[in-house]
Amino acid sequence: MGENKERTTGVLQGTLDMLVLKALARGPLHGYDVVEHILAWSGDVLKVEEGALYPALHRLELRGLLGSEWGVSTNNRRAKFYRLTPAGRKQLAAEASEWARLSSAVARVMEA
């Protein structure tokens, strides 16, 4: 599936879900904007592959962490918008704190 990994850093499988949830924390977005947001917020480092993004979105939706509805995008196209459900918000909080714990631990190890 994923053929080109040259330009940007791939996203770890486990963290992708968290990043998607985080991207949606401010409000509903369609898939393309999720990619854009993550890319922008990471300072153009994290480029989410579409081949990984959509399966992740649908997986989260099927787990009840995301809701979705069809709407019209800014350029007047039919687009599917995702939003966090309460369960998704809870999940994001849990994953964020876990991530903070983990990354600071890794950072400490690397600084030692």
Binding site: M1, E49, G51, Y54, P55, H58
Partner: peptide, 12 residues
């Protein structure tokens, strides 16, 4: 860059 649309669709 998007890759194989059909494969993604299959996956979904």
């Amino acid at each position: 860059a998007f890759g194989n649309v059909e494969l993604i669709k299959d996956d979904l």
